[in-house]
C-alpha cells in the first residue's frame, strides 16, 4: 500500500530485471562462438528469442491494463515489472546484436526500440515527479471545484458590470465567453492562454488578445483613472479586483492543464513508436530468415 511503481514490493522486479541482465551478460562473456558475436550464433538466437518474448509481453501491458476483471496481479505490479524488464530488454538486445550496428533494417528496429524505451523512461520520470506538483498546484481543490470558482467569479463580475455602463458589460461578457485555455493538447502543454476580449475605445470595438486578463485589466485601470464619481470608482475597483482574482485562478487552471497534459503527452510517443517498432521487428525477423 502507498508505494510508487519503482518501490513496488521491495523492488521485486528490479531484482528480477537485474538477474535477467546479469544472466545475459555472463552468458555473453562465457560464450565462445566460432564467428564474431552476432544474432546468428546459438546464444544470439537464444537472446533474440528472449528479446521477442519480452517485447510481446511488454506490449501486452496495453491489454492487461484494460482487462479490468483480470485477477493476474494488479496493474501497478504489471507496470512496475514493465518498467524494470523494459530496461533489461536493452541489455538483452544489445548482447543479441553482439554490438554490431549498421545502416540496415535490423538497426532501424533497434533504434526504434531504444526510442520506445527512452520515451518510457521519460514517462517514469514524469510519473515520479508530476503528481506531487499537480497536487500542490491545485492546493486542495479539485479541477471541477476550480471551474466552479471561475464560474462564480464570472458571475460576480457580471453583476458588478451590470451596475456600470454598457462598455463594462461588454468587456465582462466578452471576457467570459472568450476565455480560452488549452483547447488542444499542444496549447495545454505550452500553458497558453488564448483568451480574447472585446474593447470599445473611441466609439469602435476591437477584439484583442487577453492573455492573463492583461488587456481587460489595462482597460479597467484606464477607466479607473478617469472615473469621476465615487460610486463608479468603487465599482470599477471591485471589478478590477474580481478580474485579478480570475487571472490568478486562470493561471492555476492553466498550470493544472499543463501538468496533466505533460503526464499524458509521453504516451503519444511511447505507443505509436511501439507500433512502428513492432513493424520493424517483423521486417527484421522476416529478413533474417529470408537470407538464412
Amino acid at each position: 500500500m502507498h508505494e510508487s511503481i519503482l518501490a513496488y514490493r521491495k523492488r521485486r522486479y528490479l531484482w528480477i530485471a537485474l538477474g535477467v541482465s546479469l544472466l545475459a551478460i555472463v552468458a555473453y562473456l562465457f560464450d565462445d562462438p566460432q564467428e564474431p558475436s552476432n544474432g546468428g550464433t546459438v546464444l544470439g538466437y537464444t537472446l533474440g528469442t528472449t528479446g521477442v518474448l519480452l517485447i510481446l509481453w511488454l506490449t501486452w501491458f496495453g491489454v492487461r491494463k484494460r482487462r479490468y476483471s483480470s485477477t493476474r496481479g494488479t496493474v501497478q505490479g504489471w507496470l512496475s515489472a514493465h518498467v524494470y524488464l523494459g530496461v533489461a530488454l536493452l541489455v538483452v538486445v544489445v548482447l543479441h546484436a553482439g554490438f554490431q550496428f549498421g545502416m540496415n533494417v535490423h538497426t532501424v528496429a533497434f533504434a526504434l526500440m531504444v526510442l520506445v524505451i527512452a520515451s518510457g523512461l521519460w514517462g517514469v520520470f514524469i510519473y515520479m515527479r508530476y503528481p506531487e506538483r499537480a497536487s500542490a498546484n491545485r492546493d486542495g481543490s479539485s479541477r471541477p471545484e476550480l471551474m466552479d470558482q471561475l464560474e462564480d467569479l464570472d458571475r460576480r463580475a457580471q453583476r458588478v458590470a451590470g451596475e456600470l455602463s454598457e462598455e463594462f458589460q461588454e468587456l465582462v461578457e466578452s471576457g467570459v465567453s472568450r476565455t480560452q485555455l488549452g483547447s488542444t493538447l499542444w496549447t495545454r502543454l505550452r500553458g497558453r492562454d488564448l483568451s480574447q476580449i472585446i474593447l470599445r475605445q473611441g466609439g469602435k470595438t476591437t477584439v484583442m488578445a487577453n492573455p492573463g486578463q492583461e488587456a481587460a485589466l489595462d482597460w479597467l485601470a484606464n477607466e479607473q483613472s478617469r472615473a469621476v464619481d465615487a460610486d463608479s470608482l468603487a465599482k470599477i475597483g471591485e471589478l478590477s479586483a474580481l478580474i485579478r482574482n480570475k487571472r490568478q485562478l486562470l493561471r492555476q487552471i492553466a498550470e493544472d492543464l499543463r501538468l496533466q497534459a505533460t503526464m499524458e503527452i509521453w504516451l503519444y510517443f511511447h505507443v505509436p513508436l511501439t507500433a512502428a517498432m513492432l513493424m520493424a521487428l517483423i521486417a527484421h525477423i522476416v529478413t533474417v530468415f529470408l537470407y538464412w
Partner: peptide, 27 residues
Amino acid sequence: ACVRACPTGAALRMSPAEFVNLTKKAS
C-alpha cells in the same frame, strides 16, 4: 477493480481504523 486497475498505486481502500497508516508518507 478501481484499486487493482490503478497503474501507479495511488488508489487505496481502507477502514477508518487504518487512517493512521496514511500519515506515513509514500516511499
